[in-house]
Design a protein around this nucleic acid. Sequence first.
RNA 1: GUGGCCGUAGCUCAAUGGCAGAGCACUGGAUUGUGGCUCCAGCGGUUGGGGGUUCAAAUCCCCUCGGUCACCCCA
Length: 521
Amino acid sequence: MERRPIERVRGTQDLGTRGADALDAVRATCERRFAAHGFRRVDVPVLEAAELHLRKSGLEIISKLYAFHDLGGRRICLRPELTASIVRAAIAAPAPRLPDKVFASGPVFRYERPSRGRFRQFFQTGVEVLGAEGPLADAEVIALAGAALDDLGITGHVVTIGNVGILSDVIGRLGLTGRRRAILLESLEEARRHGIDAVRRRLATLDPDAFAPPLSVTDGTPSLPVAGGDAEAMARLVAGTSPGDLGRRTLEDVTARLVARMQGDQSHGSVDRALAFIAELGEVRGNPDAALVAGRALLEAHGLDTGPLAELEKTVDLLEAFGLDRARVRIDLGLSRGLQYYTGMVFEIEHESLGTERQLCGGGRYDDLVRVLGGRQPVPATGFSFGIERLVMARDADAGPLPEIAPATILVVPATAADVPVAIACAAVLRRDGIATALDTSGRAVRAAVTHAARANFPVVVVTSGDDPPGSCRPRALAGDGATGSPPPAPVPVPAANIGAWLDSLGIPRGRGGHHPERES
RNA sequence: GUGGCCGUAGCUCAAUGGCAGAGCACUGGAUUGUGGCUCCAGCGGUUGGGGGUUCAAAUCCCCUCGGUCACCCCA
C-alpha cells in the first residue's frame, strides 16, 4: 500500500492558526469598514458557468481559468474573481432600489505560475456600487479602499488612478470597432512598457489588415493591394463600371467608399492615429496636478473632448474631501488594467514592500458589464477588489506581524483524574458566563499543565478539585495585572460564577481574541 | 508560459564524495495541586520524489514535484 504523503496542490497553501487568524482578521477589518459605509454583504458561488467569465473577460482569460466539465456535461469553472458573479446575481434578482452597495469575500482561482504573493487559490474581498454613475461614486470606492488600508495600519502604499474612457472615446471617434478596438484598448500598458512598435507588431500579427496600404488607382486600372480576396473582386467590379455611372464622384472615391463599407473600420490611417495617441497617452502620469495639466494639453492638441479628463479631475478633488492623502495619489493615463470590462475610471493600489507582486487592490468603473452579461437595462457600476494575502503581507511589513491569539481565555485543569467531572462542570459555568474556556484533556500533572498554559498564551489557568467548596475553583492569572511571573502560594478557591468580574478587574478580556501582553512585540 | 537559484527533524539551519548534526520547539522529570528561566533525559529523518554515476551520494548527473527571484501577466 502506498504510504507516501499526499502533496498540496500547486499554488495553494495550508494555513496554521497563526496564518488563518491573520487572514481572517484582515478580511474582518476590511468588511467592518465596508459595512460602516453602508455596504451590505452578499455571497455568490465559487462555481459558475464558464461562459460567465469567458463572456466577461474575453477569450484571452481562458488559459488562466480553472474550467472543467461536470458530470452533467456542463462547462463549469472556479471563479477567477467576484465581480462577474455579483453582477450575474444582480441581473437575476435586481436590487429593489439603486444604487445597490454590496461587498463580498471569498476564495478565487487562477491558473497562473505561483510565486511570492501569487497563488492559484487566494482570497479577495471587495465592493461594488451598482447603479451609480459619476465621479462621486468613483471617488467613494477609491477612498473606501484607502480607509480600509488605514484601518489595517498599512502606510506604504500608492493609489494610481487612470481613465480608460479617454482612449475608448478616441478609438470610437476614429471609427475603430470590434476586435481592432479591443486590441488597441488593451495595448495601453504594453505601449509604455515595450514601446509603440511592439503594439504595432502585435496588431499586425493579430489583425493583418490593420496596416493595409492606401488605395491607389492608376490609368483606370485599380490596384488594390488590400488583403482579402473580396477586395480584388470588388476592384474588378468597380473597374468594369463606366465613368458615366459614377455621377460626380471619381472612381477612386467610389472604390474607397466600397472598401470602407465592406471592411468596416479598416482604415489604416485611423489605426496609426490611434497608436500615436496611445503612445502619448502612456506618458501622462505623475502627481495629480501636473498630470492633469499634461492630459488636458494632450487632448486639446488632438482636438478631443476633455470630458473624461474633467471627470478624473473631479474624482481626484473629491478624494481629498473623503480624507485620502493627496500625496499618496498618482495619475496615470496609461493605466488600463488587465480585465477588459472597465469603461471609465480605473485604479490600483500598490505597496512598496511586496516586490514583483505588489498590487494590493484593483478596480474601476464598468458601465457596460450588466448589458454584456444579459441585463436588459444598462446599469452603471464601479468597485474594487483587494487581494487579502497581499494585505496581510503589507500589514506585516508596515506594522509588524499580528500578535498570536490565545486559544481561549481560560484553561481549566482537573487537579487529579478524579476531579475531571468537577472541571467539566466548572468549564461549562465559565462558558455560560461568556468566557472562552478550554479544558485540559491531556491528563498530565498540574505543574506541567500550567507550564503548557503559560507557553500556549492562555491568560488564565484554573485548577478545579472536588476538595474545594462546590462551584469554586483556583484561578491563576498568567497575564495582565495579576501575573506574578514566579511560583506563588497556591491560589485560593473562588466561586466560578465570580471569575468574570475577576477577569475584568485584571484587565483580561473574556472572549477569545485577547493577546498575551508580555508576548506582544 | 521563459530563464536563474533553492529543497536536510515541526521551525531556522550545519554537514564542501566518507558515521545526518545543532539551536529552538515538543514530551517527561528535577516539589505526586500551579509559570515562561535553569538543569537532566527523551521524542524526532525513505536528506521533496524517482532514476543514474561511484567502493561510498544530502553532496555529482538526469527526470519530476514544490518553493523562490527576474521577465510575462495579474489581486
